[in-house]
């Protein structure tokens, strides 16, 4: 029997968690709860998809939370103060995010700097810039916003699959295809295996690095747009700490923090597990919402310990299979 992949363990944790919640609250197992889980965590799912690419490639992107905050403020001000049509504002912010991510990727590659430091600088930069634009929450009242929040696919049982949930699912699906079925995706895994070796095998490491951070920042920008739909406002303090939530989702989803292994589906499950805990707390009504953080912390620790244990086992097993030699 083949070893259980980490993503299967994540799936089991999610299913067991959901079953436990259902056992306590019979109303839990409904399309309403499931659809809300997707809607409430749409922005996190999008940004965590980008983070999955970054972490599998052996990097980290600490700037995404600030990019989300920046995006909400930028979009709100552009629409409300400057009267820019929302779609134009969206295009502009996504381009800006692409340039921002590309710059971080280029700095990481050209100066051979640790991604941790470069994206930490990016985090302060983006957060600072959003404060510079506005320190107040700016409500968005454009017609598009009410159209989008009214739109939903009705599910049997009363659930509403909202537009932003659909966007998130589309991003996850596209991310999974990109990561698992394209040359780009294979190169992402290769980078996480070894940068030096990947370069020796003729893969353009520099342009890959730039494109990976660009992808992460663009998805953070998209998550910011989705967040602005969700809250119908732009606020410079929004999404503080989301970079850490998304890293937690990626790791709980079975991606190796040191790179080289992981899946997009696992990340989605990691996001949903965090959402599940939050939902449970809402159902219970007496627990402090900070329990989400505590349980996430415990899960995170358990998964990192699990990964380390699996690596150790693999190492101790040593090599291993020799090919079958005919003739």
């Amino acid at each position: 029997m083949r070893r259980l992949p980490p993503v299967a363990i994540t799936a089991i944790v999610f299913v067991v968690g959901f079953a436990l919640c259902t056992a306590q609250f019979p109303n839990f197992a409904s399309t309403r709860v499931a659809a809300n889980l997707l809607t409430d965590n749409a922005f996190l799912g999008i940004v965590a998809t980008g983070m999955t690419f970054v972490i599998i490639s052996g990097g980290i992107d600490l700037s995404v939370g600030s990019v989300i905050g920046f995006t909400t403020v930028f979009v709100a001000l552009a629409i409300e103060r400057l009267g820019v049509p929302p779609l134009v504002a969206f295009a502009a912010i996504l381009l800006l995010c692409a340039a921002f991510g590309a710059a971080m990727g280029a700095i990481i590659h050209v100066f051979d700097m640790p991604p941790f430091i470069v994206t930490l600088a990016g985090m302060f930069l983006a957060r600072g810039a959003s404060f510079l634009m506005s320190t107040e929450s700016t409500p968005i009242s454009a017609p598009l916003y009410s159209t989008v929040s009214d739109f939903a696919l009705r599910l049997p049982g009363g659930g509403r699959l909202t537009a932003i949930a659909l966007i998130m699912l589309a991003v996850v699906a596209a991310g999974a295809v990109l990561l698992h079925f394209t040359r780009f995706g294979a190169n992402v895994y290769a980078l996480g295996g070894s940068r030096a070796t990947t370069a020796l095998m003729g893969i353009p490491v520099g342009s890959m690095t730039v494109r990976i951070y660009m992808l992460s920042s663009v998805l953070a920008g998209l998550a910011g747009i989705v967040f602005s739909f969700y809250t119908a406002a732009g606020y410079s303090l929004s999404a503080v700490g989301v970079e850490l939530d998304s890293i937690a989702a990626v790791v709980i989803g079975g991606t190796l923090l040191t790179g080289g292994q992981g899946t997009v589906v696992g990340t989605l499950l990691g996001v949903l597990i965090q959402g599940l805990i939050q939902t449970y707390i809402n159902f219970d009504g007496t627990l402090s919402s900070w329990w989400t953080k505590i349980v996430t912390g415990i899960l995170l620790f358990a998964f990192i310990a699990l990964q380390q244990a699996m690596l150790d086992i693999a190492r101790r097993a040593g090599p291993r299979k020799t090919g079958v030699l005919k003739s």
């Binding site: 394209t182 040359r183 294979a186 190169n187 895994y189 290769a190 996480g192 295996g193 070894s194 070796t197 990947t198 020796l200 095998m201 003729g202 893969i203 080289g260 292994q261």
Partner: peptide, 20 residues
């Protein structure tokens, strides 16, 4: 060995020139 142990044997053989 200058190959990527985390990728499949097939990916290692064809990395950067996979049939698409």
């Amino acid at each position: 060995v200058n190959l990527l142990l985390n990728l499949s044997v097939a990916q290692n053989l064809y990395l950067g020139r996979q049939p698409t």
